[in-house]
Design a protein around this nucleic acid. Structure first.
Lengths: 117, 117
DNA sequence: AGAACCTTGACAATGTCGTGGTAAGGTTGA
DNA sequence: TCAACCTTACCACGACATTGTCAAGGTTCT
């Protein structure tokens, strides 16, 4: 007696193909339980996640790899921090760049001239 | 008189190739100013961003497309919200799935039997 | 036993990403 | 004017993302 839907049943009720359910599992985004003999068993939670995932991808036209990356950021503090820090620097005005940078900048501007000499 | 480094100069001081600087610009991650005649002009802020971006990619082995997606999430509230909501549902136990889902679940479990009848 | 499932693995087609080239033509500075 | 830049627009190539399909071999249920 199955404690969840098998892959083809899950496919029918979620709109994914069986092939894609295996692929989604491979990306680590939705992993069903397994029966003693190895059959994938999708429970209500997984089915719901599959449906919302599908909607998410279609609504914003993003890929599984994008969501997988978001998941990676969610669980890896260092990564999330590094990315957010980089992104937040975006809006900063050039005036807020350290003075050492201005120095290096001026040097670089004349570097080619010096290189010729 | 140039108010910033031209693409090849910027390439030399950041470690990127000129080709990649154009590609990075295409992804929207680092866009230099332009001279009256259309030359790309990289200022200190852009150079710094290019250097840190390079470090970020190497350190965590992520792609430009990943950072671009993170940027998209950062500026698109709807997207960020949808993704975060989806990811946060991850840890939830099946018990927390609404009762309607259990109902649908039980229905689905017997659907195939009914279909035969 | 036998139909109807399931599993993994592999081959394949199409598309995007990350890079490097090259060509045709405009800009700059001595 | 002329060398040395710059620009955009392509072609190309390997790696990865997304799907499908098929094969060989277990599992389930009647």
């Amino acid at each position: 007696m199955m404690e969840g839907l098998t892959i083809n049943e899950a496919a029918r009720t979620t709109g994914w193909s069986a092939r894609m359910l295996r692929y989604v599992e491979q990306t680590g985004l939705v992993s069903p339980a397994r029966s003693a003999s190895g059959y994938r068993l999708y429970g209500p939670a997984q089915l719901q996640r599959l449906r919302t995932l599908k909607e998410l991808l279609a609504r914003f036209d993003v890929g599984l790899s994008d969501v997988a990356f978001a998941a990676r950021m969610a669980e890896n503090l260092d990564l999330r921090d590094a990315v957010q820090t980089w992104l937040e620097a975006e809006a900063r005005r050039p005036e807020e760049v350290g003075p050492e940078d201005w120095l290096r900048f001026e040097q670089e501007k004349h570097e080619k001239l010096l290189a010729v000499a």
